[in-house]
Computed example of a mutant assay.
Amino acid sequence: MTTASASTTALAPANPWALVPPLGNLDAYIAAVNRLPMLTYEEEQRYARQFKEHGDIEAAGRLVLSHLRLVVSIARQYLGYGLPHGDLIQEGNVGLMKAVKRFDPDQGVRLVSYAMHWIKAEIHEYILRNWRMVKMATTKAQRKLFFNLRSLKQGFKADAADTDTYRETLSEHEIDAVARQLKVKREEVIEMEARMAGGDVLLDPAPSEDGEQAFGPIAYLADAAHEPTAMLESRQREMLATDGIATALQTLDPRSRHIVEERWLKVNDDGSGGKTLHDLAAIYGVSAERIRQIEAAAMKKMKKALAQYA
């Protein structure tokens, strides 16, 4: 965040672009970046060209500042690892600055789509470097339970040294005994034992010997439902399914439009699909093959109209 702060200093006269003074408060930082204005496509292109062609650091700073809220949003998706939110944001900001440095405005994509991959890559790398540093227990009570539980389990193991009755996991009787001795709920004992038994898992496992990509936490860790690109794609699909279809239908002659509507856009009373080719052939007094030809030509024309609409 040091580079972003330097850019902010250069932009201090433009009041909306200035971050609040450092308060050592993450909530204040997040509130500040959420107040920064977003750039229009034209502004983004202008600043990107100024930086690419003239090395304008102030233009690069504006690109970085306008996307800091994106970093906060993405970093929030990785809080499940127990790593500090501020550190995740810090690493994401590094990825954002790398993205701005490499962004090419001539590629025809928005910076938000390009930067997302760099931000995630930097956060992933940080998680991989610190995976073994994730704290087993977070609160004081949990840390106390963690260490006492380990000691008690060692005692159970010593008591069973001369028999074959010892198991790595606690029995129901042992769980109740630990809960009474430590004055905690048995559910807390079960949860802590499960956390202690859990081993490290590769965030992004290497491909298997047969060349197939192994399935790891990276595949389901982040919630993609609220990613800007996913939201834009969903919005575009909805528009194509409503306004786009309606616009494409308007390009057809009445007979072709009626055939498409009866075949694909209407449902029978029994819940089944629309009319068959033979049903429509009987209505228009032609063969089913002729109806199929009209339908194929109409679909081709609609597809062309939808491509222009998109």
Rank of each mutant, 00 (worst) to 15 (best):
R102A: 13
R290Q: 14
E212S: 15
G274I: 02
A197Q: 09
K135Q: 11
E122F: 10
M196F: 09
A115S: 10
P84K: 00
D104R: 09
Y220S: 08
Q250R: 14
G155S: 14
K98C: 07
T247D: 08
I291W: 00
A214Y: 04
V112C: 08
A75K: 02
A194Y: 02
E191N: 13
Y114D: 04
M136I: 12
Q50L: 12
T3I: 14
K101N: 14
D200E: 13
K303P: 01
M239G: 05
I30K: 08
V260C: 06
D210V: 03
T9P: 01
P254H: 04
D176P: 01
K304P: 03
L65N: 02
M136F: 10
S151E: 12
E227T: 08
E209G: 07
M239R: 12
L19P: 02
D200H: 11
L19W: 05
Q90P: 04
R102K: 12
E172F: 07
L182V: 04
V71L: 03
V184F: 04
D56Y: 02
T2P: 09
M196V: 09
K101C: 12
Q50A: 13
H173K: 13
Y114L: 04
T229C: 07
V286C: 10
E289N: 10
N15M: 14
V201Y: 07
H54D: 12
G61C: 06
K140T: 11
A206G: 03
R235Q: 13
R237N: 11
E227A: 07
K120L: 05
Q308A: 13
K266N: 06
E168N: 12
G82N: 02
R257D: 09
I89F: 00
Y81A: 01
A141Q: 12
K101Y: 15
I175R: 08
D200A: 11
E58M: 09
E172C: 02
K153T: 09
V20A: 15
V184A: 06
A214K: 14
A121N: 10
R46N: 09
K185A: 11
I57W: 05
E227V: 05
I283S: 09
M97T: 14
V109P: 01
S73M: 08
L265Y: 08
R186P: 06
A115E: 05
K183L: 02
F215T: 05
L170N: 00
A14V: 15
S171P: 00
K185D: 14
A194Q: 11
L63T: 04
S151A: 15
T163N: 05
D204Q: 07
Q293C: 03
V260A: 01
T139L: 02
K185L: 07
Q250W: 06
G199N: 10
Q308L: 15
T40F: 02
G86Q: 04
K140V: 09
I294F: 01
E172D: 15
T139Q: 01
G55C: 05
M38R: 15
E295N: 11
E193P: 00
L240Q: 07
R180C: 08
A99Y: 01
I291R: 00
T8D: 14
R290P: 03
G108A: 02
D279E: 09
M38N: 13
G24N: 07
K101D: 15
M302T: 02
Y220K: 04
E261Y: 08
K266G: 00
G55N: 03
Y166A: 06
R150E: 13
A219I: 06
